[in-house]
Structures are given as structure tokens and as C-alpha cells.
Design a binder for these strands. Structure first.
Lengths: 233, 233
DNA sequence: TGTCTATGGTTGTATATACAAACTAAAATA
DNA sequence: TATTTTAGTTTGTATATACAACCATAGACA
């Protein structure tokens, strides 16, 4: 069973919405209609509709039916920063050292964090980005191999992973967390900083339409990097 | 059927987590154990666990079990959050200690940073916000006196500065930077954390239509706080 | 005409069952 | 001893069924 049935039903309904075949306010097929259409049990059809409702695409009312919700307002203030571009915009020289580049089966914890099956093939790269020869970012990235098959063949001293990935698996969405940590000794070493000084750590997951593309851990020396954002009320 | 069974099970599991009977990383009862304990079918017990996982309280892995997730809170980077509200939304108790509350003429550097004339009157407050009696944020704030004349009369153990300010000088926009720093000894002391552990530092300027309202420095213990954001492409 | 009552359709809750997939750990094997 | 196999547990997917709760409408009734 390659693709679960409920996923197939979700995709079918989502497509009808995205192609404007079903418009906001329209009623989508009821659970029983999907049962007839897809030849599944009601619980399976139900699951598809429930998950779509959970994603905000549908609005369900007991006794009435399921309806296409109003389109989500898009409000993205922050943006994904490409470290190389950022450095060049400052008029400085960006360079990059590749420390690790290999493949491995996904360990359980990582797989869970990325929403993958444990054991699925991952590529792993560890790089250090330098601004005018001074280390600015340590980047450890795990990439879903099936979504970026040529990852290991890239020359990351020329193209950044984020640039390559956005070419082969276009960015659909991303989430990230920011925290303050102490660097592991090897990281402090790679960043040419004392081990007792803080780092800004960004953990970023990027998604294409086909799933999680990569999970990156980005560490910056606390005294060389700041994140900025602007908010309009 | 007043209260659905799956809600009862969710509440029971949630209670054990909130009362620290189950701690982050611990395994929660399996679906079959809940079946035995509550006398329900597996699908019902399963639903309870799935919804808790959906809420971020649990982490489930096929073949392994369900585990209490890391409870470190996630705050949104892209919207101004009131720390008190944030804590209450987690169902925890917010309290606040006032360390400093006074007035001073703006020093040159600060005036420049706020876009004011040097010597203009500022109010200054230093507070510590606690979540369940554990310090979560050290807040040092300089306020343009002319835009919030009653600042010194506020009882900040009841209302947060940010809530008061947004009432008297509605927020038009804001900018902020995020960095990782080591806390000054007095700050580490106020936050009940070791002085050699990193802090997440947010420097935030808020603007009303009449100009810069306040400049705030917010410091969080690195191991108790994360900032999160989501980006749609 | 206006109100009340079925009636059918829809989602919500719940059970019982079956097999697949993934992980752990113990037992069997080389 | 080291490796492979096996068994057991746990979560994932899927079906079939039953009844409850809710809604709209058509039809019965006053």
C-alpha cells in the first residue's frame, strides 16, 4: 500500500478546491458520497475531511455538511535568509568550507522531527560560511534524499545548499525556531569562537509540496550576528 | 452522553503531564493500556492520544510508543506577544516583580537609538516576569515620557507595561532584533540562572503614530524559551 | 394559513476487528 | 562471541457497524 487511501482522497478534494472547481462556501462531497466515489469505508473518507478541516481548508457543521473555507490570509513578515546573499548584500566576500557530506539512514528522533519514516535515506552536510574569512555560520543540514537526489554531487563552495534546494524542490513553506545555546566544542572550533560564549541557534524546516525537504541547524556566534524583523500593526 | 470518553482520556493524560507525574521524554500509556484502564475501544484511546499529539503535548513513534514532548514553549517571532498573555494561554500563572521604576533624561546614545533629542524625559522600568514562580523574562524598558505620562503611576504587578502602552499609545509598527548574549550578573541573578549560560535577547522598538513609544530589552534564559515562526512561500 | 411532526441526510461518537509497519529485546544460529 | 532470526509490543491504516445529535425540508394537521 504505497499511498494511503485517505491521502488520495485529501489530494483529490484539495485539487478541486485549488483549481476553483469548488469555491469558498461550496459544499464538498459528504462522507457517504466519498465512500461511494472512492470505494472506501466511511471512517477513511471521514479522516480525509477531518484532516482538511484541521488544515483550515474546510469548515464542517454537524447536520449540514462540509464547506470550503474562506481562503487563508497570507501574512509572512519574516523571510528565509540565504546567508551567502546576505553577506554579498553587505558588500563582503562569502566563502564556504565543507566539513561533512555523506548519506545515512534517518535515526528515529530525526525522522520524527522531519515527519519521515525512520531509516529513510538522508543526506547530511555540515558547512561553515565565512564573511571575509571570518566564520559567521555553522550549518548542519539533513536533506530528504528522494527529494534532492543529486545533493551529494553539488559543490557547496560555489552554491549554497539552500540555493540548490530551492531550485530542485521549490519552497512551499517553512518554520523555524530561534534560541540561545552554548556551542558544542567542535562547533565553537569551526566558528573560531570561545566555547563559553553564546550562539544564536536557528532550527529551520523547509517544505516543498511533496513534504519536508530539509532540516537545518544554523549556529551563529552571538557577538557577530543578529536577527532583525519589522512588524506592521 | 455528557462528556465524550476521548475527552476524559485526554484530560486524564494531560493532567498527569501538567502535574509532572509524567515528565518530558517519559512514555505515556500505550493505546492498549488506556483501553484496559478506561474500558474503551482502542480507536477511542487512540483518538485521545492523536489529539494530544496534534496539540504538541505528545510525540508518537510507530513501534515505540507515545512520549511527553519537550515542553519548552514556542513563541511567535512575527507578532508582538504580551508575555503575560502568552503564559496564561499555556494555562500557567503569570506574576511580576518590579525592580526599578523611575525617570531620567535621555542619555545621548539612548536618545539616538530612539530617535529623540538628548535630554528628553524618559521613564525607565525593570521587571521580571515569572511563569509559575519561575523567572522567564527580564524586561528593561525606556518609555518616551510625553507619550505615556502616567507610566510611573501604573501597578505593573497587575498590568504589563506592554498592555498599558498599547492602551495609551496604540501600536503602529515595531522592529526588533534577536541575539544571543551572556547575562550581566544582576540579570542572571534576577532570572535565577547561572551566569555562564546564554540568554536570548530581544531588543524591540515600538512606534505609535506619534513616534517612538518605547525601547525594550527582553532577556530570556536560553533553556526556557524559544522563538518560533512560520513562513508561507 | 400557520404550526407541528416525521423523515432523510449529515456529521459526531464509539466499538470490534484485521492486518501492516516499525521498533525492541530475547532467542537461535553461525 | 558476533550475527541473524524470531517473537512481542506499539503505532498506522482500513473496514463494517451502530447509534446519537443536528439540520433542513416536505408533509400532516389544526
Amino acid at each position: 500500500m504505497a499511498i494511503p487511501q485517505y491521502i488520495r482522497i485529501k489530494d483529490a478534494v484539495r485539487r478541486r478546491i485549488e483549481q476553483a472547481e469548488l469555491r469558498p462556501g461550496d459544499r464538498v462531497p459528504s462522507e457517504n458520497q466519498l465512500v461511494a466515489e472512492f470505494g472506501v469505508s466511511r471512517m477513511t473518507a471521514r479522516r480525509a475531511l477531518l484532516e482538511l478541516a484541521d488544515e483550515g481548508l474546510l469548515q464542517r457543521t454537524q447536520g449540514l455538511g462540509s464547506f470550503v473555507a474562506d481562503l487563508r490570509p497570507l501574512s509572512s513578515i519574516s523571510q528565509i535568509r540565504n546567508i551567502a546573499e546576505e553577506i554579498r548584500q553587505r558588500g563582503h566576500v562569502h566563502s564556504c568550507r565543507v566539513l561533512v557530506l555523506n548519506a545515512l539512514p534517518a535515526p528515529a528522533e530525526l525522522a520524527a522531527h522531519m515527519g519521515l519514516a525512520a531509516g529513510e535515506l538522508l543526506y547530511h552536510s555540515v558547512l561553515v560560511h565565512l564573511e571575509n574569512a571570518l566564520p559567521l555560520q555553522w550549518e548542519s543540514r539533513h536533506v530528504t534524499a528522494s527529494l534532492a537526489p543529486d545533493y551529494l554531487q553539488q559543490d557547496f563552495s560555489q552554491t549554497t545548499p539552500s540555493a540548490y534546494l530551492s531550485a530542485v524542490a521549490p519552497l512551499a513553506e517553512a518554520d523555524q525556531t530561534v534560541e540561545a545555546v552554548l556551542p558544542a566544542p567542535s562547533v565553537a572550533d569551526a566558528l573560531a569562537m570561545p566555547g563559553d560564549q553564546p550562539c544564536l541557534k536557528i532550527t529551520r524546516r523547509t517544505f516543498s509540496h511533496r513534504g519536508v525537504v530539509s532540516l537545518a541547524e544554523l549556529l551563529h556566534p552571538g557577538d557577530r550576528y543578529r536577527l532583525g524583523s519589522h512588524i506592521d500593526a
